[in-house]
Amino acid sequence: MDFSYKQLKKKSVPYVLLIPSMLFVIGVLGYGVIYGVVISLFEVNVYSLETPFVGLKNYIYIFQDPTFLNSLYKSLIFVFMSVVVGIILSLVFAIALYKLTIMKSFFKGLTLIPYLISGIAAATMFKFLFAGDVGMVNQFLSVFGMEEVLWLADEWLALFVIILANIWFVTPFAILILLAGLQGIDEQIFEAAKIDGASKLRIVFQIIIPLISSMIGVSLIWLSFASFNMFDIILPLTGGGPGRSTEVLAVYLYKLAFNDLNYSMASAVMIVIMTLNLAVSFVYLKVFKV
């Protein structure tokens, strides 16, 4: 066996190890993306028989379509609020779990439960929590003598409800990632800070957060991806309404693909969502140096 052959063999090891996973990822998911990109350049829909090549026409169309622009706007609000509230909540819960001295594993286990539930089931739960006067939330409020709130009938409250449901659904994983970061911090740093007489808030903001910034970055990426792609909670919960107040991009895409059967337009929206996700993750990577 000559030297270069051996070396080649050695070099090929990582590639060989990666073959199975890459086969799945590229074969299934990559194929889907490429198919989407190609189809978005044609006009494939259910109301014309021909499928001509149209270049960027679909993209130009959606960016002039008020429905799409509304969805984009709602998506940005939805994702921004989900991510901001989600990360704060995750951080608070993660620190509390970290500081917990007893029953730690019980509560850690409990935290992940929402993540294991299917989207349809979660949507049904939230629907009946907030539905009109039947909902538990309103019944709860009425105990305190408060008036019935029209959660799902008001445009902004409906948006609030889907953000809440989304946060409930996607934060568990972020909490555990942040907890991972916290547990990686050297205890001595806290001791030193305490001796220096640093206040609790200062410890959180000046020691903990900088030390786990990369975990925060990972959580942020997770939260934004999951929120941008979320439709299986929103659709059964509000159907995009009232008006089009909760019709975020993923819901808009779903309607294009499954109701209008306008595959090209749906693919164009998919590419937009992908691009947004990429841009967002790029920002996080830069800011948090993940």
Partner: peptide, 12 residues
């Protein structure tokens, strides 16, 4: 009609 009618589905 109900104040929540705009959120009402066939079922409600």
């Amino acid at each position: 009609t109900d104040k929540n009618a705009i959120a009402w589905e066939a079922d409600n």
